[in-house]
Design a binder for these strands. Structure first.
Length: 560
RNA sequence: CGGGAUGUAGCUCAGCUUGGUAGAGCGCUGCGUUUGGGACGCAGAAGUCGCAGGUUCGAAUCCUGUCAUCCCGACCA
């Protein structure tokens, strides 16, 4: 990715100008080699729109426009046409819509490092909300936070054979320190089972030391070939829980407990409905005995794994000597687990709820729950005071509120901007409202001019009214997403229909399945889809893809 | 890793075929008028044309190499 100065960062261009060395460095990387950042909702002049629309239609565009097509980047044209023509983006091209939404809402910026993401303040605000909700639940279930090193010596990493093999293609290595070549390479952690396992071996001596219940908030790195904001990035933020237990039963309970925490955060906080289940053997975490996941369904019919929880059995305990003296005087290996949710969950939230105007953030996740936009006209003395007072009252009530009193932008501009950024409630306050003693409340979850989008609320009731409205919005967004998931979950016992639905990317296709990896590969070759997760028992005797005896009920879908 | 495409102002792009003083719209800065769903006027700032070689009196433009990014595939606990 090329260097991309943050647009709108004041003084940035002067800074570049003043520093020739910096400029040279940037120049070598290429200043413009990066994705187009399409705009949402901003219309260009008609002539431009028409030309671009024509240009996209196909090979005949030369005749239509009289211009050579060779200079145009078709990808960029596609992006622009979509946003300009206001084709429903989520049905036309979710991927382009998604990238536009992320950049335009100022959640993220591309970094001058391949595959890495800059999380801007508004995006970090989302992440902080997710962190807060998860962290509270981790504490409630008895976990403590700790931090382990970023770097893992190669000799330690290679001890658990299956684990190494699984991650080998994605590991980034540190080979030099200062000017000296290292005698042993250091892996930048792709996950921390190894380094944590090594420490647990030191800490755990007796059954009295168990269970160990630790969570780590961290960044990890996986050398991905293709990246997209939040969904797949080389470096990403997540949390990883790592626990050690005396018995397999306890470890299994822990894994189930944390999977339920993830379901709750996804559904009740992010308003993203998910399916819980176990991963098939081919989708399992490298080195785990069982991997469980929550799976969400995106509007394009592809599934998104939103969190995982792993039963590691005694595999890591054996590889890293995590042993303890049991009550019966025997020396035993501990049973370990790990579980994680990353900022990918934010990607799920964005795609699930967004609409043609940009993001729609569920209130419980919104960095800004309420934005106040004053409508100045004539003498604004009284209005300014009223707006400030309203702002203070909201803050005092514990709301995450922002007063947008920027003088340079028109109210209409602000409406669109905050719509794009997904703020759940907008309060408009103008002289008309003041005279009537009301404030105009606008819900982001409703379409423009939809029934109930705007309503007048008496000024002296508004602060008490907002929490109720936020809850309504939260539930409405979840209900919409839930309906979509249900409408696109299709159970079938017919093999031809099964294949057809997967090819059409119709959603979560729910069928009895044998569990054989070869069967899964055959389905993937035919359709591009794999199992997302499984549960028991099967609802019929025969596996729908291959006809062998069925052991599971499986959701099949193409995935991100 | 394979196939395709693109690098010119903060953004989107024109200019390149046919070499000759670097362009537009949006954004940005200042002033004024405005403001209930993306306001308007005037003035202004801003780019060693991705990078390195080469050809030439002269290169954004022609040639070679290189780097980066995007799209499609492969890969992806």
């Amino acid at each position: 990715m090329g260097f991309r100065p943050a647009p709108g960062a004041r003084g940035r261009s002067r800074e570049r100008h003043a520093d020739p060395a910096r400029r040279r460095e940037l120049g070598q990387r290429g200043r413009r080699g990066r994705a187009a950042v399409p705009r949402l909702g901003r219309r260009r002049p008609r002539a431009v729109r028409v030309r671009r629309a024509a240009a996209r239609r196909g090979p005949s565009r030369r005749h239509v426009t009289g211009r050579s097509p060779t200079c145009a980047n078709p990808g960029r044209l596609a992006v622009m046409e979509r946003t300009l023509e206001r084709i429903p983006p989520k049905s036309a091209d979710l991927s382009e819509w998604y990238q536009a939404a992320c950049y335009q809402a100022e959640l993220v910026s591309q970094a001058p490092v391949r595959g890495c993401l800059v999380l801007r303040p508004y995006g970090y605000g989302l992440w902080e909300r997710l962190q807060a909700e998860l962290d509270r639940r981790f504490k409630e279930t008895g976990h403590e936070n700790a931090y382990f090193p970023l770097l893992i010596p190669e000799s330690l990493l290679t001890r658990e054979a299956e684990h190494v093999e699984g991650f080998a293609p994605e590991v980034a290595w540190v080979t030099e320190g200062g000017s000296e070549k290292l005698t042993e390479r250091l892996a930048i952690r792709p996950t921390s089972e190894v380094i944590i396992g090594v420490m647990y071996a030191e800490w755990i001596q007796s059954y009295r030391d168990l269970p160990v219940l630790i969570n780590q908030w961290a960044n990890v790195m996986r050398w991905e070939k293709r990246t997209r904001p939040f969904l797949r990035t080389a470096e990403f933020l997540w949390q990883e829980g790592h626990t050690a237990h005396a018995t397999e039963q306890e470890a299994a309970e822990e894994v189930a407990r944390m999977l339920e925490v993830y379901r709750e955060v996804a559904e009740d906080v992010c308003a993203v409905p998910v399916y819980k289940g176990e991963k098939s053997s081919s989708e399992r975490f490298a080195g785990a005995n069982h991997t469980y996941s929550i799976e969400a369904l995106m509007p394009d019919g592809r599934a998104l794994q939103s969190a995982t929880s792993h039963e590691l059995g005694q595999n890591f305990a054996r590889a890293y000597d995590i042993t303890f003296a049991a009550e019966d005087q025997t020396q035993q290996h501990a049973w370990t687990t790990s579980w994680g949710m990353s900022w990918r969950m934010l990607g799920a939230l964005i795609m699930t709820h967004g609409d043609d105007r940009g993001l729609r953030i569920p209130p419980r996740m919104a960095p800004v729950e309420v934005v106040i936009v004053p409508i100045p006209r004539g003498d604004t003395t009284a209005l300014d005071a009223a707006a400030k007072s309203l702002h203070e009252q909201c803050k005092a009530a514990g709301l995450r509120v922002r007063l947008d009193d920027r003088p340079g932008q028109s109210p209409g501009y602000k409406f669109n901007e905050w719509d794009m950024r997904g703020v759940p409630i907008r309060l408009e306050l103008g002289n008309r409202d003041l005279e009537a003693g009301v404030v105009t409340l606008v819900r982001r979850d409703k379409a423009v001019k939809e029934d109930g989008q705007k309503q007048q609320v008496p000024l002296n009731e508004i602060v008490a009214f907002i929490p109720t409205m936020l809850e309504q919005i939260q539930h409405n967004l979840f209900a919409q997403a839930k309906t979509f998931l249900q409408d696109h979950t299709i159970a079938t016992l017919d093999r031809d229909e099964f294949i057809r639905l997967l090819k059409e990317r119709a959603g979560m296709i729910d069928v009895p399945w044998c569990g054989d990896p070869a069967c899964e590969v055959a389905v993937k070759d035919a359709t591009g889809a794999t199992t997302r997760n499984l549960r028991q028992p099967a609802r019929a005797e025969r596996c729908v893809p291959c006809g062998e005896p069925a052991r599971y009920q499986a959701y099949f879908a193409q995935s991100y």
